[in-house]
Nucleic acid binder design. Sequence first.
DNA 1: AGCGTTCAGCTAACTTGATTAGCCAACGAG
DNA 2: CTCGTTGGCTAATCAAGTTAGCTGAACGCT
Lengths: 187, 187
Amino acid sequence: MPRAGLDAAAVVAAGAALADEVGFANVTMGKLAERLGVRTPSLYKHVKGQEDLNRRIATLALGETAEAVGDAVQGYAGRDALAAAARAFRAFVVAHPGRYAATIGVEPEGPDDPLATAGQRLLRAFSAVLRGYEIKEADRNHALRMLRSLFHGFATLEAGHGFQWSTDIDESFEWLIDFADRGLRGR
Amino acid sequence: MPRAGLDAAAVVAAGAALADEVGFANVTMGKLAERLGVRTPSLYKHVKGQEDLNRRIATLALGETAEAVGDAVQGYAGRDALAAAARAFRAFVVAHPGRYAATIGVEPEGPDDPLATAGQRLLRAFSAVLRGYEIKEADRNHALRMLRSLFHGFATLEAGHGFQWSTDIDESFEWLIDFADRGLRGR
DNA sequence: AGCGTTCAGCTAACTTGATTAGCCAACGAG
DNA sequence: CTCGTTGGCTAATCAAGTTAGCTGAACGCT
């Protein structure tokens, strides 16, 4: 019986890919094992179990999102940076709905949880956007939370097909960016 | 063996209450049956199964949210209406995290799905808020989606303890309302 | 090359939870 | 009172996660 040559990273990566294909809720240990050409119990050599797997997928997804947003912002400032960050964020969620779904509702278990670290990297990427606006120190965290709520909300609603009628979604998103930009400039 | 006198509504209501107590993800047919003083299979006389139950809980939650927001808005206009709607929405989500979690990611199965109806009632409540602002017809749906994204995003992040550091969350929320109000007035 | 250790992957078995089939008694209409 | 409907039950099946314990492949060392 030849070895499959797996490790934790490979298992998590395959889990994330599977989540994008079949939906995060449908990622089972069995399907993932099959995908990897291995029997289910073998996965337990690499991850502690389903919950650990989910948490690791979420961590991976947050890290990738942070990287995408961070890269997109490079070299821009003000409205351009905001738009770039917003589009990169949304593009990631649309392209990887399963991964992103994994991040909803997971909580870091401590300050040194890699999940927390990845989350902070994403926050820093959005923080960088705010530096292009004149925001009072006291308002900075509020503005950050606003941006996060706005884009997280839009992305999850879109990913869940929450927008019902027919107005163009791309157009709404650009409108949203414009709305946020004006609001941030006007204070 | 005396009958428990259940019906679909009672089962769903108990399921919603259970979701608020133990978290939506932990609502099992078994726990719900126990809570109702009945054996698990008996629940299938009232709901088709777990998925049907979840969908019904989501429908109930959306309806209650719509009612709460609709009531809160009564008699107000403009900024007052926006603030009332926002606070009512957030209060509901904080008070009923399990119910609200049930609404995330469910999709109506058709135009006459009660879930869709409930969702539209909630949308209408927010629509009413927008009537207090001078919004161009073409922008109305965008603005509606913006409000929905903003409040849905904030509520889910808060419910999932997604806001990490210590800045006061109530304060951020009021800041958010103010931000939305100014943005909606300035166009 | 031979040797020993480590450990990835396996089979077997257990557990929990959802679901179905089929029985039976409680309730309501006449 | 009788009968049909139907809510609740027991028993059984199925799917998925998880654990225990075995075994041989890979690798380093001599």
